[in-house]
C-alpha cells in the first residue's frame, strides 16, 4: 500500500515538473504567436507572417544566414573530423591541447572576439571581398566548442583504433578509413555537431552586427524597430525551423536493431588489449 502511494506521488511529481517546464518554455512562444497574429481592432491577422515574404531585405538576409550556416557546417566538419580522428589515432597525447584550443571561444565574450578580429577582417575584406559569407571564418571558430564536444563523444563511443587498424589490415588507405569506416560510425555525432552549428549561426547577432553584415538576426533587429509584428513572426519561424531540424536529426540518428534471440549479443565494449 505504501509502495503504491509512493509510486503515485512520484508520478504526480513528474507530471508537475513536466507541466511547469512546459509552461515556462511554451508560454513565451504562445505569446509571440499571439503577438504576431494581432490585427486591428482586436482581430486575428496573418499580415505580419505574410510580410516575411514581401520584405526583400529579410529574404536576402535569410538566404545569407542559411548559406552561412551551410558553409560553417562544411568548414567545421572539414577542419575537425580529420584533425580529431588523427589526434585520437596517432597523437592522443595532444588531445587535451586540441580540446583546450577548441573550447577557448567559449571563454571569450563576442565583443572581445570582434575587437580582436576586426583588423583581421579588414584583410579578409581586402583579399576575399566584403560578402557576408566571409563571416564563415569567424563562425567556424565560434562553433568549435560545441562541435568538438559532439564529435569527441562520437569518437569516444567507438573503438576507433581497432576499427581503423582492421580497415588498414584489409587494405584501406587513411582517406578510405576516414570516409568508409570512421565517418559512417560517428554519423550521429556529426549530425549533432552540424545542428548545433546551424542553430548557433542562425541565432548569432553580436558579431554580424558589429562587423556590419546583414544576417537574419541583424535584419530582424532592424525590422523590430519599424514593424515588431514581422520581427516576432520571423523569430517564431526560426524557432519552428530549429524544431523541425531537431526532429529530422532524431529521425536520421542511427537506430539499433533488435538483438538476436538465439544467442546473447556481445554487449561488452571491446576489450582494449594491453599491448604486449
Amino acid at each position: 500500500m505504501a509502495a503504491v502511494t509512493g509510486r503515485r506521488s512520484r508520478s504526480i511529481l513528474r507530471w508537475l515538473v513536466l507541466v511547469v517546464v512546459g509552461i515556462y518554455l511554451l508560454l513565451p512562444l504562445l505569446a509571440m504567436v499571439e503577438f504576431s497574429t494581432r490585427g486591428a481592432g482586436g482581430t486575428r491577422s496573418l499580415e505580419a507572417w505574410r510580410g516575411i515574404g514581401e520584405d526583400d531585405d529579410l529574404l536576402d538576409s535569410i538566404l545569407t544566414s542559411v548559406e552561412l550556416a551551410a558553409l560553417t557546417v562544411v568548414g567545421m566538419l572539414v577542419l575537425l573530423v580529420p584533425t580529431m580522428t588523427w589526434v585520437h589515432l596517432r597523437v592522443p597525447a595532444v588531445r587535451r591541447i586540441v580540446e583546450f584550443i577548441c573550447l577557448l571561444p567559449l571563454t571569450i565574450p563576442a565583443i572581445v572576439l570582434v575587437v580582436g578580429i576586426a583588423p583581421i577582417y579588414a584583410w579578409v575584406t581586402y583579399l576575399v571581398g566584403d560578402s557576408p559569407l566571409t563571416l564563415t571564418f569567424v563562425y567556424v571558430v565560434l562553433v568549435l566548442p560545441y562541435a568538438y564536444r559532439a564529435i569527441d563523444g562520437g569518437l569516444g563511443a567507438i573503438d576507433i583504433v581497432t576499427l581503423s587498424e582492421a580497415a588498414r589490415s584489409l587494405g584501406a588507405s587513411w582517406p578510405q578509413v576516414l570516409v568508409r569506416v570512421i565517418i559512417p560510425n560517428i554519423r550521429g555525432a556529426l549530425i549533432s555537431a552540424s545542428v548545433v552549428s546551424i542553430a548557433l549561426v542562425l541565432g548569432e547577432f553580436t558579431i554580424a552586427s558589429l562587423l556590419n553584415f546583414d544576417t537574419v538576426q541583424v535584419v530582424i533587429n532592424l525590422l523590430g524597430k519599424r514593424n515588431a509584428g514581422i520581427a516576432v513572426a520571423v523569430s517564431v519561424a526560426a524557432l519552428l525551423f530549429a524544431f523541425v531540424l531537431l526532429v529530422v536529426v532524431a529521425y536520421l540518428e542511427p537506430r539499433r536493431r533488435s538483438a538476436p534471440d538465439d544467442e546473447t549479443p556481445a554487449t561488452a565494449p571491446a576489450v582494449q588489449e594491453a599491448r604486449a
Partner: peptide, 19 residues
C-alpha cells in the same frame, strides 16, 4: 605500409564495422 601487406588480422577486441 600496413594496408599494402595483404595480411588478414583478427583482433582481440571486437573489430567488425558497426555500420
Amino acid at each position: 605500409s600496413a594496408h599494402r601487406r595483404n595480411m588478414g588480422m583478427v583482433f582481440q577486441a571486437y573489430s567488425l564495422f558497426p555500420n
